[in-house]
């Protein structure tokens, strides 16, 4: 009883301290941002910004030169190859990430090296766990854009750079989610298989996957939605898909093309959202 109340008091303090410190950090950060942008701040809240915004949006829509979508439908339609390339890139990267995360997640879950399943702890697997976990957090921490910039040093610019950069980042994210799933799973089936002599890979394919595959696929589809949003950003540096055209038309100040590209981008995001909700019906129907 005493112990319980102790832990609740501790939790209360943890929450209170983190909330207060995050509020203080936010206030400091606003002070810093306002101090750093002191020259542009009066300009930000003025009529000038409003007119600039209006002008920019009308440029984006192509109203200036009668180049809006109604006039430019053909050139919009011609960009479909780039949009298709972007879609392929996202599918490929999420596939690679899913395969690698699926095959390595079992080594990154805590209950596979301590005594919850096997009844004794296994030091060799503990070392593997440590290595794989650290690789996951390293790849998860580095954003896709920085990975793509680094990969551009030794790969030829193109779709593969973007796909590999996205895949490396998503291996970390998916691997962490998957290994947390395995740590929380119901281990009775696992234990009975293990007691009848099944080992690592057999346990993964006959005990873990049948139970957790719906969850894994849900996470995979959720990450696909995120990846299609990031493909454009990675394409900015790796010269692939819509991102390349995006950067080029930014450099040439072709704002009306930019509007068309943004439209394609939103269309792609909507298509992937719809596909994901369709594929999710396969997963949720039995659960």
């Amino acid at each position: 009883m005493n112990k319980l109340s102790d832990s609740t008091v501790k939790n209360k303090y943890i929450i209170r301290i983190s909330l207060i410190s995050s509020v203080i950090l936010s206030i400091i950060s606003w002070g810093y941002v306002l101090f750093e942008s002191r020259y542009s701040l009066p300009g930000l809240f003025s009529l000038h910004t409003v007119t600039e915004t209006k002008e920019f949006i009308s440029k984006l829509m192509g109203f200036e030169q009668n180049l809006s979508l109604a006039y430019q439908f053909n050139s919009w339609f011609e960009l479909r190859h780039l949009a298709f390339e972007t879609l392929l890139m996202s599918i490929c990267s999420i596939g690679i990430a899913g395969i690698i995360a699926l095959t390595t997640c079992i080594f990154a879950s805590r209950n596979f090296h301590d005594d919850t399943i096997f009844g004794y702890s296994r030091p060799l697997l503990k070392i593997v766990y440590f290595i794989v976990r650290n690789i996951y957090s390293f790849t998860r921490a580095i954003p896709e854009l920085i990975l793509a910039i680094i990969l551009m040093l030794f790969l030829t610019p193109g779709i593969w750079v973007a796909a590999i950069a996205l895949a490396i980042h998503n291996v970390g994210v998916l691997g962490k989610l998957y290994s947390e799933c395995i740590e929380d799973m119901d281990i009775t089936a696992l234990k009975s298989l293990q007691s009848s002599g099944a080992r690592g890979w057999q346990l993964l394919s006959y005990a873990v996957l049948p139970q957790l595959l719906p969850k894994f696929l849900t996470y995979l589809l959720y990450r696909w939605e995120v990846v299609i949003r990031t493909t454009v950003v990675v394409g900015l540096v790796s010269a692939a898909g819509l991102g390349r055209e995006f950067r080029l038309s930014f450099s040439y100040f072709h704002y009306e093309d930019l509007g068309l590209l943004l439209l394609w981008y939103i269309v792609l995001v909507i298509i992937v959202d719809l596909l994901c909700s369709l594929l999710r019906q396969f997963i949720t129907v039995r659960y």
Binding site: L88, I91, C92, G95, L155, W160, A163, L279
Partner: peptide, 30 residues
């Protein structure tokens, strides 16, 4: 059907990229 869709989408996209894109590693990349 779900397995078929996912596997074929992945294989198709990777083969497609593999054949349209140029060499993977650039000169002096290794």
């Amino acid at each position: 059907i779900l397995t078929l869709i996912l596997v074929s989408a992945f294989l198709w996209s990777s083969i497609r990229i593999f054949y349209t894109d140029q060499t993977l590693i650039s000169y002096d990349g290794i």
